[in-house]
């Protein structure tokens, strides 16, 4: 497979996952706002921080109320990280690689973007918004399902999944970071709602139900962190995502350096002292983990996408 096309597929996987994760975040936040008492409700501003686009948001808006934040996250064309932009990017990337995926997948990806663009051009009430997001999430999952069942599990597939799980690991760490920030101080003061708030972290990652099945105790900080960072079976935990990345890497040529990078990130999670993280070290920890994730991306890029020009081709008839 062409290096350029492999890169397109990797980013297709990433953008599709990003669109889905953003959609989940917005919907879950809306639920939290209804569940939690006013003074504990997370508000909408943290969502902008999670996507790392605070500067652009401040440039465009003076207030971070529901209406502005939701528009910004779903439909803002100048925001490269909005759901609409992600779907557009997914489409553009797949268009450059469409000869490698089943035709229906291209048709659905194309249609997903066109439909979202049309839908987001009009006004978006709360209920319509919910339905829109649910349909985006479903269609993203449908696409992955179609790929899993109709596309050969070849290198093209490897790169899509590589992008998907790499992105998900990234998003999970971002959500953990921002969502837990205000929980880690003065835990004692808000004891009655402590459990509720850690539940909200789980819910942001659609992890609550699975957490309850795996961890029977009442919801508490260290257990939640342990579950979301290190659970080997929950498909949105960082560990699971890293394991999935490693599994894809195994099938690719020249994968050693990239695997080493994944191993480093994995070790960081395995060796983390979770009690201490809850007591205030989480933010710094996530920053270091993010650097490891970026390192994995760099390794992938150098190995398969931008083969160094010094690697001269084999001469003569191969």
């Amino acid at each position: 497979m062409l290096s350029r096309v492999a890169e397109n597929l990797y980013w297709y996987g990433r953008y599709l996952e990003r669109a889905e994760d953003l959609g989940r975040m917005v919907n879950v936040n809306a639920h939290l706002m209804l569940d939690l008492p006013g003074r504990l409700a997370p508000g909408w501003a943290p969502l902008v921080r999670i996507t790392g686009s605070q500067a652009l948001f401040d440039e465009l808006h003076d207030v971070a109320e529901e209406r502005q934040v939701v528009r910004f996250l779903l439909a803002e064309p100048r925001h490269g990280g909005s759901v609409l932009s992600c779907l557009g990017q997914a489409r553009e990337n797949l268009q450059a690689a469409r000869d490698l995926v089943p035709r229906e997948v291209w048709e659905q990806t194309n249609d997903l973007y066109l439909a979202a663009r049309e839908r987001l051009a009009g006004p978006l009430g709360k209920r319509a918004r919910h339905e829109f997001i649910v349909s985006v999430i479903r269609r993203c999952q449908q696409l992955i399902g179609m790929l899993a069942d109709t596309m050969s599990h070849d290198h093209a597939w490897d790169f899509i999944l590589l992008g998907r799980y790499h992105e998900r690991a990234d998003m999970t760490t971002r959500i953990l970071d921002v969502r837990s920030a205000h929980l880690l101080r003065g835990v004692e003061d808000i004891q009655p709602f402590d459990q509720l708030q850690w539940m909200s972290v789980l819910k942001s990652l659609t992890a609550y139900q699975m957490y309850r099945r795996h961890v029977r105790l009442r919801v508490n900080g260290p257990d939640v962190l342990r579950f979301l960072l290190g659970n080997p079976m929950f498909p949105r935990s960082v560990s699971f995502c890293l394991e999935a990345v490693a599994e894809r890497l195994h099938g690719l040529p020249d994968h050693e350096a990239a695997l080493v990078a994944v191993g480093r990130a994995q070790r960081m999670i395995d060796q983390a002292d979770l009690e201490r993280l809850v007591d205030g070290g989480l933010s710094a920890f996530v920053d270091r983990l993010q650097l490891e994730l970026i390192g994995i991306g760099d390794r992938i890029t150098v190995t398969w996408f931008r083969t160094a020009p010094t690697a001269a081709p084999v001469s003569g008839n191969a």
């Binding site: 497979m1 062409l2 290096s3 350029r4 492999a6 290198h155 690719l252 040529p253 398969w304 083969t307 690697a311 001269a312 081709p313 084999v314 001469s315 003569g316 008839n317 191969a318």
Partner: peptide, 21 residues
């Protein structure tokens, strides 16, 4: 940009497996 020609006048494309004629 995916193709290069080497000193022996052969054309190669840049793939994830290296360069293929």
């Amino acid at each position: 940009r995916d193709l290069i020609v080497d000193d022996h006048d052969c054309v190669f494309m840049r793939t994830i497996h290296g360069f293929e004629q």
